[in-house]
Amino acid sequence: MEVGRLPISASQRGKLISAGYTTLSSLSSLSPSVLAREVNVSDTEAAQILKVASHGSRLDGSEGGCATINGAQTAWDMLHEEEMFPRITTSCVDLDNILGGGINCKEVTEIGGVPGIGKTQLGIQLAVNVQIPVDYGGLGGKAIYIDTEGSFMVERALQIAEACIEDMSESDGLLRKDFKACQLKMHPNNILENLFYFRVCSYTEQIALTNYLEKFISEHKDVKIVIVDSVTFHFRQDFDDMALRTRLLSGMALKLMKLAKVFSLAVVLLNQVTNKYTEGSFQLTLALGDSWSHSCTNRVILYWNGNERYAYIDKSPSLRSASAPYSVTSKGIRNSASNCKRIKMM
């Protein structure tokens, strides 16, 4: 049984989830004061949450005791957990639709495309969107951005952050909610502050950082997304021993997958494209070879179609393959302009 089904208030539930407490077992060994500090609630509130939680887990036990092995879950629980967990929006409705609502937590999503298609833009957008507060349907989490190529521009991140806050206050005007408290919390500078930026300059640094992430995230439990832009760059230089490269890459992929599962966060890996020689012709595929393609849960390919940018679901265990247009605007990733026109015409 997970936290989402506990009879507690929505804001408490949100705080628990964004602090990384998703299952009752994760709460079982905590003292009220520790919980109060970790999720930022009062001591009495924390004590009440723990009481409800322990009651819930006893109930769970009497229902038949699904947790025969510590840490095991039933598929039913997993389904509920997945449904309950919010997804990270891409700010493009069409793209969200084909992704089933956005980028999913606990999964590794690989996004690839030709240079200039908007991989870095999408990366920055996700790093900003993960910070949308729970009240606005977001995760209220923090982001880790690992830059291997040097394409992250701080002015662009600021621009996207400003647009994101603007959009939220607009939607707020429509819903006439009390916005004041959130407005104070969300300032473009706060968004930059909650974006942990790492610049790595070699593949050894990249591997070292991947190994260190587990420790870093356990100290920053509210990190909800890890973006690597790009996973490829340093692995395309200086590798004569391809077997070594494959081993290093799959080791790194396993680490990232583990992070996604343990901390219930989304991992987004940006990848480059390359020409692959098959059956006498060159074809465009994502880089790093065939064995790498097993390393990700989902695979999204970005490509040009006429003068429009499109995204295509190439691989996913739960999504059907589909494509959708998107555009890169001054505000960040948005719906494709021509698509909006079409809707207006109808």
Binding site: V154, E155, L158, V200, E205, Y212
Partner: peptide
């Protein structure tokens, strides 16, 4: 040495 994130607010808000 453990890697530490760069604070984006500690450097100029536009790239030189």
């Amino acid at each position: 040495m453990t890697p530490a994130p760069e604070n984006l607010l500690h450097r100029p808000l536009t790239t030189p």
